[in-house]
Design a protein around this nucleic acid. Structure first.
Length: 802
RNA sequence: GCUUAUGUGGCGGAAUAGGUAGACGCAUAGCACUCAAAAUGCUACGAUCGCAAGGUCAUGAGAGUUCGAGUCUCUCCAUAAGCACCA
């Protein structure tokens, strides 16, 4: 039988017998294995996809054999800009393009024999699915978690289009290389910032890898500090946020953001309005990149007429605006301590402002003495009235205490994480189900009218002023207000790509439900995603969005757990043979179809997990792939050595039990490469024998099955066993994995000189006796005296000889 | 600049409650089989000195702790990814 016939035969068998279909009403323990569902691009499945799908497939198959009711689903994350660009270019409706691509992806996946439960398949672009995405958006809105606000977008003045951060990388438009501008647009926002603390705390209820947790923590960016009221000489006040309250006596000016609310509040009292206005204008149009170019010189502009009062010394202090202060973070204003902050230092130098050193330990005439250098070094305060002489750490506490007591400050936390900008000026996304009525304002659509379908239009190009293409379709835009029934217009922005992927794992638990996005009963049964795998690039944002979404649903009582994902693992990329990212332009792309055709699906699967550490990037090597083919060929040839005997060969027993243990542990421990090498060792051991028993062979095939399911099923059938996919995973006997005779190293003065064979847990005396009898060791003893005999049970012998 | 990760043969990588570094695979070379090739099998394969026995040096660099360090501590260096004025 040819390889591809074997593959097709078993793929058909699995499908015909519904082997991989998960049951929602099972009595068995559930196990939910999830891989990030792909964006079905026109270029087809990437060998990188194959790597993670194979890895997770191995887990799914193993867990199934262990008797779990395994859910291993697959679907499509098919909204997004690439599909839209493709559609514009080829003049085809994205819906059609997506359909084609999905078909191709699915065919490729099936040819690899992944054990997905295809009965649960869906695409985020299915109206039956995005109906619920829209419905959930309405819940956000109804619980005051969605609001409209102006936010900056990347704008290409040449293409007349809004760009994503990715497309605006480096501050230029990816398509035409024009400099990207910042444009203010009114957009829907989700109040994610209010979940910052919960998202941090929730991490304790997960089993994410440390580096994944860290990614989440960094993205949330919590900092603890003090918010201080700063009164103004004339009238009013503003607030500043600082994490370094100990430097408050070093304040020589204040800086407020040019882009925040604060400057507008102070506007009336500003005397040099023209100058300030032109500064604001100048910074406003700069993209973030251009702003960082100004890094060297801290310019900015004094706010004449505004004079602040130092909260402790009561001195009068100047106020500036400067674009290094961000309107969106903290209070949008900072206290400037040039002696102890590099940015403030440069600003002060530029404006020739005074500096006061308040922490001892370093000269501050040339550069600031910053917190990373003075914290926890027992540095003491100077020039700080009654706090002089205290350590930085003491002063932090005492100064805060005083300010809080005087009721001019509060201890607060700030987070880098902002609210989620939820609008996209694009066609190919979920329409936001909101309606604007002149009389009633923003009104949510009636839930029973969902889904709000994307219209079939011919032109997907955004409008001249950056509105979504939907804005051009009058028949779609014009509607009636659900409240007053008067004339109204639909929101024409669509949701971001992240929306559909924020809850898809819940839908997989109950994909056909047309009453709710998923029933509580199903979600309670499946409980949590046991194992979630995806790329490193998604560990920060996608995971954070998904967790936020789930926590919100939990808080309004719609999901059973605050965290619905238990373990998250991130895989490394598969690079081209030249160690660079695979790309068409570099000509280093490997198409899995070609590999399957030439070497077979099982070979590709084995190679993908054997190629290296799963969490690290690895370059492609066709030579190594051939080695995996050789391994499978060896397994096939072993069949000629099989004798009809239904027990393990005695001399293989120990190795067999060790192998079961190791393959099982490694597979569930993301050490796929060593699981394969264990199987290679077992195969080599079989190969050295003149014959092996049927049972020996069946065992090898079973252990190998999660990785190479086709050929193992075939060989297994040929020796007369029932299908592996219907058989249990073998159990190992701990007692039989133990080696009773072991060889350990013998060191002289810490250097390996010989070895000695001992029995397990052998007593020191007899080991010593044996060691001293070794010729080589005896020789060392002739030239010196044995000072000390070190024996670490079952590990090593070390003789100290002088 | 900050954060994180990673540095082990010609290559991908094994090995961490500190205990024989280089498992497994690839590449390479020699041999066997063959008219030949492929496939397969056997042997060698970190560097270096030596005919050999054996020795010396080796896990990015340098120190340290230890009977013993790829693994622990400190100081550097390099590479990659992410964040980039977060007060």
């Amino acid at each position: 039988m040819k390889m591809n016939e074997i593959e097709q035969k078993w793929q058909k068998f699995w499908e015909d017998n519904h082997i991989f279909e998960a049951k929602n009403d099972s009595k068995l323990e559930p196990y939910y294995v999830l891989v990030e569902f792909p964006y079905p691009s026109g270029s087809g499945l990437h060998v990188g996809h194959v790597r993670s799908y194979t890895a997770q497939d191995a887990i799914a198959r193993l867990k199934r054999m262990q008797g779990y009711n395994v859910l291993y689903p697959m679907g499509w994350d098919a909204f997004g800009a690439p599909a839209e660009s493709y559609a514009i270019k080829n003049n085809i409706h994205p819906k059609e393009a997506v359909k084609e691509n999905i078909k191709n992806f699915k065919k490729q996946m099936k040819s690899l024999g992944f054990s997905f439960d295809w009965t649960r398949e869906f695409s985020t672009t299915d109206p039956e699915y995005y109906k619920w995405t829209q419905w959930q958006f309405l819940q956000f809105y109804k619980h005051n978690m969605a609001y409209k606000a102006t936010a900056k977008v990347n704008w290409c003045p040449n293409c007349k289009t809004v760009l994503s951060n990715e497309d605006a990388a480096g501050g230029v438009c990816e398509r035409c290389q024009t400099k990207v501008e910042q444009k203010e647009k009114s957009q829907w926002m989700l109040k994610m910032s209010s979940y910052a603390e919960d998202l941090l705390k929730g991490l304790d209820e997960t089993n994410f890898a440390d580096r994944v947790k860290l990614g989440q923590i960094n993205w949330i960016g919590k900092s603890k500090g003090v918010e201080v009221d700063i009164p103004l000489v004339k009238k009013g006040m503003f607030k500043i946020f600082t994490t370094c309250i100990e430097t408050i006596y070093g304040v020589t000016f204040f800086v407020i953001a040019p882009d925040g609310k604060l400057i507008k509040e102070l506007w009336d009292d500003i005397e040099n309005k023209e100058e300030v206005k032109s500064y604001i204008e100048k910074t406003k149009n700069l993209s973030n990149m251009a702003r960082t170019e100004l890094n060297k010189e801290k310019k900015g502009c004094e706010l004449k007429g505004i004079m602040a009062i130092h909260p402790l010394t009561k001195e009068h202090i100047k106020v500036y605006t400067g674009d290094f202060v961000l309107g969106e973070y903290g209070t949008g204003a900072v206290m400037a301590v040039p002696s102890h902050d590099e940015r403030d230092f440069e600003f002060a130098k530029y404006h020739k402002l005074p500096m006061i050193q308040v922490i001892e330990g370093q000269d501050t005439s040339e550069k600031a003495f910053e917190k990373q250098d003075y914290l926890n070094k027992n540095c003491r305060l100077i020039n700080s009235q009654e706090f002089t002489g205290l350590t930085v750490e003491e002063a932090k506490e005492k100064i805060t205490e005083k300010l809080v007591k005087e009721n001019v400050a509060r201890v607060v936390n700030n987070y880098k994480m902002r609210d989620w900008i939820f609008s996209r000026q694009r066609f190919w996304g979920e329409p936001i189900p909101m309606i604007y009525c002149e009389k009633c304002g923003w009104v949510p659509m009636d839930e029973k009218d969902l889904p709000l379908l994307l219209p079939d239009v011919v032109n997907y190009v955004p409008t001249e002023d950056g509105e979504s293409p939907l804005a051009k379709i009058d028949s779609w835009v014009n509607t009636t207000c659900p409240k007053c029934k008067g004339k109204a217009k639909r929101e024409t922005d669509t949701m971001p790509n992240w929306a559909g992927s924020s809850w898809y794992f819940l839908r997989f638990m109950d994909p056909k439900n047309d009453k709710e996005f998923a029933s509580m009963k199903s979600m309670k049964y499946w409980n949590k995603v046991n194992w979630y795998n995806g790329g490193m690039e998604h560990t920060a944002r996608h995971l954070l969005y998904a967790r936020f979404w789930v926590q919100f649903l939990y808080n309004i009582g719609l999901v059973p757990n605050k965290e619905m994902i238990w373990t998250r693992v991130s895989h490394g990329m598969v690079l081209g043979a030249n160690n660079e990212k695979m790309s068409k332009s570099k000509g280093n792309v490997i198409n899995p179809d070609d590999i399957i055709k030439e070497y077979g699906a099982d070979t590709l699967r084995i190679y993908e997990v054997f190629m290296g550490d799963y969490e690290q990037d690895v370059p492609w090597s066709t030579d190594s792939l051939k080695g995996c083919k050789r391994f499978l060929d060896k397994v096939i040839r072993l069949k000629d050595k099989v004798i009809d005997k239904d027990e393990y060969s005695k001399d293989l027993e120990n190795l067999i039990h060790k192998s079961i243990k190791k393959v099982e542990e490694d597979t569930l421990n993301i050490s796929y490469n060593t699981a394969i090498s264990t199987l290679m060792i077992l195969t080599n051991a079989y190969n050295e024998k003149d014959y092996i028993t049927k049972k020996d062979y069946h065992l090898l095939l079973t252990l190998l099955n999660p990785y190479a399911p086709h050929i193992t099923e075939q060989l297994n059938e040929e020796i007369g066993y029932k299908p592996i996919c219907l058989s249990p995973w073998p159990k190992y006997d701990e007692e039989k994995t133990i080696d009773h005779n072991i060889t350990i190293g013998v060191q002289v003065n810490g250097k390996i000189r010989s070895e000695v064979e001992i029995t397990l847990n052998e007593k020191e005396e007899t080991v010593k006796e044996k060691v001293l009898k070794i010729d080589k060791i005896a020789k060392y003893l002739e030239n010196g005296k044995l000072i000390k005999f070190i024996y670490v049970s079952n590990k090593i012998v070390n003789l100290i000889i002088k």
